[in-house]
Design a binder for these strands. Structure first.
Lengths: 193, 193
DNA sequence: TCTCAAACATGACTTAGATCATAAATTAGT
DNA sequence: ACTAATTTATGATCTAAGTCATGTTTGAGA
């Protein structure tokens, strides 16, 4: 979906400063959010305060549709990772978009499928595999996005919040993976080889 | 989607006997499967042989689209839970369906959203919560589908395979939940109150 | 280049849930 | 109604990962 098109339609652009909350669990969904600029993380928080990163959304991507489409309160927080500008598209406009822009509708179906695929993979990992395997799987997944020689701009804490492990475990496990030669690290950072 | 319509179009009806495999991990997707009659489970299996139930699909539902839509090999097995009849719709026909049947396209978007919602919920559970909480969450989820007084036709093993726990743990935990009055059991079966 | 906060590291101890073994209760098929 | 096969049950260990405590390294901003 072309963001400019949405702006042309007169839809409102909202700004969120780093770490501000866009929506939180329990709220009734009213908008789908298209990111014009910035980055947003979607996290669920357990009763004991443990965070789990459900996803990260970047410039050009959108989030919040599933809850809106099936009309159920949000499960997660979405929080700006950086100062961000988003366009909030209300329900009616979003349904219009699906109806009248067949390309968008197809694109949405693909996006949802991709996310579903990722979640299925992670579910399998969390349900069945132990720390090392779990870690290696997301590391490889994240490495897919970057170029050889680059390093992952992700902290151990973030890896922990994506795998359901604790920082200490992630630290110990990455060390083991590096020793086994399954990943390469430089000054703590994980680099693509 | 109306199954009869698909049959009228001359699409082939395939039969699978209980426990036969419809597709397995690694295969390149060629069809989307509409269930005319029966029931199918989608399971991933870890290296150590542990099964995880990704989903269960019943008469009138369809499965296998995400992999086909994003053109990635299947992650899971799908296996007939009962003798089943399914219509295999090939890629071209499926894309036709999305393009030419706006109702179907909307329905598909909603279906994908619902599954995404369920997976997000389960991910949060597996990543952060302990056995009892995890179990109670799927039990309540499953109870949503049945009437008061009815009991869940799910074995402890199946609950284990949905939560990533082991049978013994599920057995011990259900007992605890029943003692706490959070669920009700009769002759081992969990009943809706 | 110095300082402070964030991120990484490591050891010691605890624990939830896995594993293994064995038995009782249900259910299904004849 | 009777056997065989599932499914549920329970006790005794074992272990991966969590927890807690206390460093050390790295990097961002003055």
């Amino acid at each position: 979906m072309n963001i400019q098109k949405l702006i042309d339609k007169g839809l409102k652009l909202k700004s969120y400063s780093k770490d501000s909350v866009i929506y939180e669990p329990g709220m009734q969904p009213r908008y789908v959010y298209f990111i014009k600029l910035g980055e947003v993380r979607m996290v669920t928080v357990s009763d004991e305060g443990k965070e789990f990163i459900q996803g990260v959304f970047k410039t050009g991507q959108y989030f919040g549709e599933p809850a809106l489409l099936i009309d159920r309160p949000y499960l997660a927080f979405t929080i700006a990772n950086k100062d961000s500008q988003v366009i909030a598209v209300n329900k009616e406009d979003f349904f219009e978009l699906i109806k009248n822009e067949p390309d968008f509708s197809m694109e949405l179906i693909r996006t949802l499928s991709t996310r579903l695929f990722y979640k299925s993979m992670m579910l399998e990992e969390l349900a069945s595999e132990k720390a090392d395997h779990r870690l290696l799987t997301i590391i490889n997944y994240l490495l897919g996005d970057i170029a050889v020689g680059e390093n992952l701009k992700v902290t151990r804490q973030e890896l922990a919040d994506m795998t359901g492990l604790r920082v200490e475990t992630v630290i110990r496990s990455t060390k083991i993976l590096a020793e086994k030669g399954l990943i390469k690290t430089m000054k703590g950072k994980i680099v693509k080889v």
